[in-house]
Computed example of a mutant assay.
Amino acid sequence: MMYVADEKRYETMKYNRVGKSGLKLPAISLGLWNNFGGYDHFEKQREIVLGAFDRGITHFDLANNYGPPAGAAEENFGRIMTQDLKPYRDELIISSKAGYYMWPGPYGEWGSKKNIIASCDQSLKRLGLDYVDIFYHHRPDYDTPLEETAGALDLLVRQGKALYIGISNYDAERTAAIAKIFKELKTPFIIHQPRYNMFDRWIEDGLTDVLEEEGLGAIVFSPLAQGLLTDRYLDGIPEDSRAHRSEIQFLNEENVEDTLSIVRELNQIAKQRGQTLAQMAVAWNQQQKSVISVLVGASKLSQLEDNIKALNNLDFSADELSTIERILAKK
């Protein structure tokens, strides 16, 4: 059956301007880091992506290494684009990234011109697109001159392969340094993608100041701390949870146990606000002035719908914010 987008898709979503640019992103964007790989059911992926667009989510965030296996998320999204979303291409913001390991040898990762140009070309082929709207350098490379990395990203814009440029996982000092180079090149550098949530607030230690000074926006990932800031673990650690997998360093039984009492207190605040803990966590992220969009993932459409409901109550009272700070200080 041919897909036709919901006519009311723009009626409830909130859109925010990215820094000083002309681009606006939805307050909630869909990240395809997990659940969109080669081992995940394609029709379920399709349901989530199309359901997101029907609800006003216009931004879909990918990277060359998303899967698993690496590249699979782009290939699957490319199938959905060809099959369903091609008529709506000009309504979509599609992003990808380069920087993490993709192929053997010295050119398959990091930030050389060789890697960035090749990675972008490979991503466009998998996506079936002529260009992406935003292309990111995924992680800093301390062995490659910053001028080379910036110059390669600038070249992508001049070649028509990207409209805007972003960076991810850069600290405050390196963000300021590359911003200076981009200014000299007149590159449309507009956005930073850092990790940020109630339990991981590193961007507040200098990065948000740089973003404001440089007129950049932030789109944050991991707003739910890999599930810690949800009701998933309120009654302990389920047997089928990811916290039981020892290979996941940032989400393990010890981390969950250490935060359970705090999570339960935060959950009480969420209940008083008429929200789930996940909804409150998404809303809280948007209190940070630099944050223009929050990236959420989903393994089913109902999860995404639940996260979108966070937009129904984005306002926090001074008492709520101070209580949350007091609770978080116990961590």
Rank of each mutant, 00 (worst) to 15 (best):
35 N>C: 11
85 L>W: 06
29 S>T: 13
81 M>W: 14
86 K>S: 09
75 E>H: 08
247 E>W: 14
151 G>P: 03
133 D>F: 06
51 G>C: 05
233 Y>T: 13
329 A>H: 09
120 C>L: 12
253 E>V: 12
123 S>Q: 10
44 K>D: 14
253 E>W: 04
310 A>T: 07
146 L>N: 05
243 A>P: 06
181 I>G: 06
176 A>S: 14
245 R>L: 10
245 R>G: 06
83 Q>D: 14
268 Q>H: 06
113 K>R: 15
57 I>P: 00
64 N>F: 03
139 R>D: 10
293 S>K: 02
184 E>Y: 03
115 N>Y: 15
143 D>H: 12
88 Y>I: 03
190 I>R: 02
287 Q>V: 00
41 H>Y: 13
69 P>W: 08
313 N>A: 12
239 E>F: 02
101 Y>T: 12
12 T>I: 00
200 D>M: 03
110 W>N: 14
281 A>S: 15
191 I>K: 01
126 R>T: 05
196 Y>P: 01
56 G>I: 04
84 D>M: 04
48 I>Y: 10
195 R>M: 13
34 N>S: 08
92 L>I: 07
95 S>W: 00
311 L>E: 08
236 G>S: 06
39 Y>Q: 11
269 I>H: 07
129 L>I: 09
172 A>T: 09
122 Q>C: 01
69 P>K: 10
188 P>D: 09
80 I>Q: 06
72 A>N: 09
303 Q>Y: 10
28 I>H: 08
94 I>W: 02
134 I>D: 08
59 H>I: 00
298 A>K: 07
245 R>K: 15
4 V>P: 00
189 F>G: 10
134 I>H: 11
253 E>D: 15
173 E>Q: 11
252 N>P: 09
324 I>D: 05
12 T>M: 02
140 P>S: 14
3 Y>T: 10
166 G>Q: 05
319 D>K: 13
195 R>Y: 06
40 D>C: 08
237 I>P: 07
93 I>Y: 01
165 I>F: 04
180 K>R: 13
306 D>S: 15
116 I>F: 05
260 L>V: 14
96 S>M: 04
